[in-house]
Amino acid sequence: MTLFPIINFLLALVSAPLLLGVINKTKALFAGRRGQPVLQAYSDLWKLLHKGAVYSRTTTWVFRAGPVVGLACVLVAAALTPFGGAPALMGFSGDLLLLVYLFGVMRFFTVLAALDTGSAFEGMGASREVQFSALAEPAFLLGLAAVAHVTGSFSLSTMFPALDATDWSQAGPALLLVAAALFIVFLAENSRIPVDDPDTHLELTMIHEVMVLDHGGPDFAFILYGAALKLWVLGALLSGILLPVRTGFGVIDSAIAWAALVALAAAVGVVESSMARLRLLRVPRLLVGAVLLSGLAFVLLLR
């Protein structure tokens, strides 16, 4: 039983880029294309890691630190995330705050690195990223707080394994609201379609992509891998709420959670194929909606 946290952590490290492949494959299927191979992200990472990095003379150490700090943060976040009914690699009371703010630190350094280049485009992307994440963060925190209230514990490692079908029958509406809010946060934080379009390279509309334009080679590999892991971490939390299946066998639980994550990635692909990006002015409204859904869940539970 003690091995499962380690196995799950390794599983996250190995199969996180696969989720990107699943999303792309789903989108290709909807568009009637054959699409890139499912394992394309691995090849991209491999290729980027073997390239050299080019640094502009105007940048400082902040620019070089950005991707490294980002990857470090998301690695710690992955170690904090419970998966498939097993506790996380590490956990303590209140680690949900650490998880949220690890993402905050990651974003802060990405933004600093973008500003360090002095490019006008990157500054614009940084401004948008900060604006939207400032709205996504309360939704995330309130949602996690609501789950903490349901399970009566403040550690992710005890919260998520404690969730089960009885919680759904007792607090189903609230959990559903939390799941809806976290899904919006999941899309916004991973810069997926209603908020940001990961495929477009039109400077005026992109948010996350524009911030990392000047990174190349291994640095960009770190950023890509960090983004994949972030997708995995947030997806694991979301599917942990939506599908708390406990069979008693760790292997089966992990397998079910893994399948749920792949299904979630496919669902993201469906959302991306069937929706257009929201206008930038309307994104805050969506995110405020997510905050309200989380807050509503919390109010429901407090009564």
């Binding site: 805050p284 409204r285 405020v288 909606g289 309200l292 807050g295 509503l296 109010v299």
Partner: peptide, 13 residues
Amino acid sequence: YTMSMVMGFVALA
């Protein structure tokens, strides 16, 4: 609209 939604939350409370 955003303000309206916030007002809605206040109304709920």
